[in-house]
Design a protein around this nucleic acid. Structure first.
Lengths: 132, 132
DNA sequence: ATAAAGCTTCCAGTAACTGGAAGTTCAAGG
DNA sequence: CCTTGAACTTCCAGTTACTGGAAGCTTTAT
């Protein structure tokens, strides 16, 4: 499939997909006309990149994560070690995201939603805090 | 407190903290010697920035999120609208992160962890997929 | 008093895109 | 078949969000 279709399916702009190829994150086939030709496997890699990038992993971390999928020659123990390291990181991110959500939820539910500026959460968080 | 202490407490490099000041994300006091002087409230903003940036929110999104905390003049209905928009985004990120974790967990648990390269998950995900 | 550590500003470099120009190829309509 | 517009190509320049380093001032520790 062409880059436009791959872009739609992966949620990444075509520009970014070409950039990822430049820095060696994937290597699509080329059709006779010179157009890039993406397989479903390529699209999976792209979606994976889209997701992990948007979650705050660096491109180099994504490259590591991708290697878990792509490299059949890689030893399983190695895969396991990398995956386990990343799992710790992901769990930390999950906890932080949950905390952020709770804060915002609280904000939404405890504020009046009208024109009164005396929101208790904002007051609580923005004021001078002496607690530690 | 000085920038070094604020850096420790927030988890952000001093360089980044100064940069955030440059682009108007916070405005610490200055001591008589010209040193920046951070309050606990500043540190809270910094920690909040650290967290939301590492979770893939852009600086501009962080600026919006921060406005929920900082601006007492802001109307509550406005706060509520922004918070609710961000909540949807956070929930999406949570779902994606959970999915990513499940994939990796599966990878960790189903692989042999020895030197055999025939991990079923890698085989499943990296191979040519005909499914859609 | 002097050295090291920490602070200041400023300027240049990097990572990860992103936009735009200039040209080629393809799919649709006349 | 011809043309027109969308989608593709490469290349180069610009943006965002830092990051490193120089040059100099202030504080702390011996």
């Amino acid at each position: 499939m062409n880059i436009g279709t791959a872009s739609e399916k992966s949620g990444l702009p075509a520009k970014t997909i070409r950039y990822y190829e430049d820095i060696g994150l994937l290597r699509p086939d080329r059709a006779d006309n010179g157009y890039r030709d993406y397989s479903m496997s390529d699209v999976h890699r792209l979606r994976f990149l889209q997701r992990s990038r948007s979650l705050g992993f660096s491109v180099e971390q994504c490259r590591q994560l991708l290697s878990l999928y792509g490299d059949k020659e890689r030893e399983s123990a190695d895969v396991k070690a990398i995956a386990e390291t990343k799992l710790v990181e992901i769990d930390r991110k999950l906890a932080e995201l949950t905390e952020l959500r709770n804060t915002l939820r609280h904000l939404v539910h405890n504020c009046h939603g009208d024109a009164r500026p005396d929101c208790p959460i904002i007051d609580g968080l923005s004021g001078r805090m002496q607690t530690q």
